[in-house]
Design a protein around this nucleic acid. Structure first.
Lengths: 241, 241
DNA sequence: GCCGATTTGTCCGTATGTATC
DNA sequence: CGATACATACGGACAAATCGG
């Protein structure tokens, strides 16, 4: 439950758009109307609207109003978005998650690995490799590297359950930002060995760096998905000149 | 050149981060300092910082300051982002673009196509299929559908050059929002017929709906990329509870 | 074409709350 | 506890775009 007023306005408007109280193509009530409805200042309403626009729910039109451009989509496959643990994603997509830990060791970052991961050379990190199951089928191969000085005490049991829950609830660290890049790569021997690939010879690959509340990058991750169990959604805006 | 003050502050800070005036891991000057530096209000500075955070350049820390988390990346392949025409993307990635128009016809949206594209049933649309060349090699297969009533007068010559330039500069329409989804799909006969696929049996597929300044969806697009010529970057944030 | 009403866009100043040190 | 720094919220002012009379 959001504590901030602009967040609850955002949630309320979003819900009303999703249940067609405000229909797609129509205009939202004007800012002045919303101000009286929610008994707040103009800035607060505008922050809520800005968030809706960022998420692709509405589009503001100068001098006209705010148009609803939301359209419900029939969603298949495995949708990524936000920063989520594997269990959270699986739950959101109504699939039963499973995990098998292949490897959990520590190692020291050398120059080659530093270049690839973004970790400083010489840092000690956990090296964790896992197979992820959805509804019983091995479909995702995950590689994680965590700074051992920020994520101490990792065990295979934790890795099999949820590292993020351990980090947040046990260690009390706050996860904030993740930078990701999405590519498509050829399958590797490891993919073939551990996953159910069907006849695909490519994988959808997500690599990323994750930052904690101190702005320190504490995790590097690579997640390899079988193509038909991968989907990502995004809203973009035309750059003004 | 940005007209708004918060945009020029955003640009200035971004430039100073990219040229290491403010180094990664360090804190930005506090908001109060920036207020005097840029001679503006607190809100204006905060808008600029919020934009930088959205783009993954900085991360705010309550009670501490704003940490720079930017790291320059060695970028290969063909990077997507924002709303860009193919020519614009090619130029930004330092590659020579080419286009071959396969088909340009009009058709009426039926129920099946309406479901797939999001266009209302019965609307008349252009159906445009093109092969895109990068440095002389056929690597991308583009399908575009435009509402004919909003994009009249399309010709093969325009399609070979740049439809977006025609829309913006000749028709005077403003492109604003695009919703996209990224998936990986098996190659089709058309892919095989027109593209240089190497040994890949998958394509990176971007489908999207594009909205104009009136909040009307005027374009549906599907862009099929050979895997090694595709890459997409993103910044995500951990959802608070 | 002009003018006024409406609506969104930008910016300012201030006050208060919360987190860190 | 006080100083500093970011987070939220309010209210006001003016600009810019649109629309109707």
């Amino acid at each position: 439950m959001p504590r901030a007023k602009y967040q609850s306005i955002y949630q309320d408007l979003k819900a009303k758009i999703e249940d067609s109280t405000y229909e797609s193509g129509e205009l939202l009530p004007s800012e002045n109307v919303l101000i009286t409805q929610y008994d707040c200042s103009r800035n607060t309403v505008r922050r809520a609207i800005a968030s809706l626009a960022e998420d692709g729910y509405v589009q503001s039109m100068h001098g006209i109003g705010v148009r609803v451009i939301y359209q419900p989509s029939a969603q298949t496959s495995f949708i990524m978005g936000g920063i989520e643990s594997f269990s959270e994603s699986a739950e959101r997509n109504n699939r039963k998650p499973g995990t098998r830990v292949l490897q959990l060791t520590t190692l020291t970052v050398d120059s080659r690995m530093s270049k690839r991961t973004g970790f400083p050379e010489g840092e000690e990190v956990w090296f964790l490799q896992r197979v992820r199951y959805l509804d019983g089928r091995p479909l995702i191969l995950d590689l994680n590297m965590f700074l051992t000085r920020l994520v101490p005490g990792l065990t295979p049991e934790i890795a099999e359950h949820s590292v993020y829950e351990y980090i947040e609830n046990v260690l009390g660290m706050t996860i904030v930002t993740a930078k990701r890049s999405y590519t498509v790569e050829r399958i590797t021997e490891l993919d073939e060995k551990w996953l159910d690939l069907g006849s695909y010879n490519c994988m959808a690959v997500i690599t990323g760096q994750v930052y904690n509340a101190d702005g320190i990058m504490f995790e590097y991750t690579q997640s390899r998905h079988r193509p038909d169990y991968f989907s990502f959604h995004d809203t973009a805006f035309r750059k003004k000149r």
